[in-house]
């Protein structure tokens, strides 16, 4: 018997005008299982993540997280329940130092947001926990740099650090390797694999780089024009003729 799902999405829909960007998707994510959502550009992957993370309200359907209906919950509450996300286009605090980027999430998680007198820089817990996280992501040397001055690859790591700092159980990564050099991609894939193996988090990522997906995921969902086309293990997906037709055939791979 499988354990109860971490995330359970039922018949989720989202229209933009008369256009259905997400058109009745039902899927679930099991705890501890690296899961991927693939599909060509415009398939609806990002919209799907926007629905789960509370950035957009669904037109229909429902989202259950650990058995609880979270449909329509605002992003900050969803984050605090344990779902954190990264964005396809890097989304960090440019003018803050790298360590401060992480500490924003830590302050909230440690319930210190109302502390208005003590200096943040003198808070040992904040400093140590942020330091540890940066260490794990190989960003220690950049802790005091302004995040906006970093390379594209390092900025994506900063965003991953913010995501992990919220202490999530479910991590949604929207094309985590988008715009990275092959070396950076390789490093990030290794990192995610390592985190998935050691950490308490369950990773759910979208990609359109097939090598990334098939190297990382145990379970793959394929989206096509707002609908779920197939699901299975990477091998099953690779062998699925419908998927090959609808998606893999269109890609240079």
């Amino acid at each position: 018997m499988r354990p109860p799902p971490l995330l359970d999405v039922r018949d989720l829909r989202r229209n933009f005008g008369s256009f259905a960007a997400v058109d009745g998707v039902t899927l679930s994510v099991q705890p501890g299982e690296v899961t991927a959502l693939i599909g060509a550009n415009g398939a609806g992957k990002t919209t799907f993540y926007n629905l789960i993370s509370g950035r957009l309200r669904p037109t229909g359907g429902s989202i259950f997280y650990r058995g609880r209906d979270i449909t329509g919950t605002p992003p900050h509450s969803i984050t605090r329940m344990g779902i954190a996300r990264s964005f396809q286009i890097t989304n960090i605090f440019d003018q803050l130092r790298v360590i401060e980027n992480v500490q924003v999430a830590l302050v909230i998680r440690q319930g210190k947001g109302t502390r208005w007198w003590r200096r943040a820089a003198r808070d040992e817990d904040l400093r140590l926990q942020a330091g540890e996280l940066l260490e794990r992501l190989g960003l220690s040397g950049l802790a005091m740099a302004r995040a906006g001055t970093l390379s594209h690859g390092d900025k994506r790591l900063v965003e991953l650090a913010i995501v992990l700092a919220t202490d999530p159980q479910l991590v949604l990564l929207d094309e985590p390797t988008a715009g990275m050099t092959p070396e950076e991609t390789h490093a990030v894939v290794d990192l995610i694999a390592r985190l998935a193996e050691t950490g308490p988090q369950t990773f759910f990522l979208t990609e359109h780089d097939m090598d990334v997906v098939f190297g990382l995921a145990r379970r793959v969902f394929v989206m096509h024009r707002g609908r779920l086309l197939a699901e299975g293990s990477p091998d099953e997906i690779r062998a699925n003729p419908e998927v090959r037709n609808a998606y893999l055939g269109e890609e240079v791979y």
């Binding site: 993370s53 950035r55 605002p74 992003p75 900050h76 984050t79 605090r80 954190a84 996300r85 989304n91 960090i92 605090f93 440019d94 003018q95 803050l96 401060e100 500490q103 924003v104 999430a105 302050v107 909230i108 998680r109 210190k112 947001g113 109302t114 502390r115 208005w116 007198w117 003590r118 200096r119 943040a120 820089a121 808070d123 904040l126 913010i162 700092a165 919220t166």
Partner: peptide, 26 residues
């Protein structure tokens, strides 16, 4: 003191990027 406190850090994060802040739990 407010600007350099944890509370102040949250305020600065809102100035920088309120969307990212809300997805960091703020």
């Amino acid at each position: 003191r407010i600007t350099v406190s944890p509370f102040g850090l949250i305020l600065r994060s809102l100035r920088e990027n309120s969307e990212r802040a809300s997805f960091a739990g703020v």
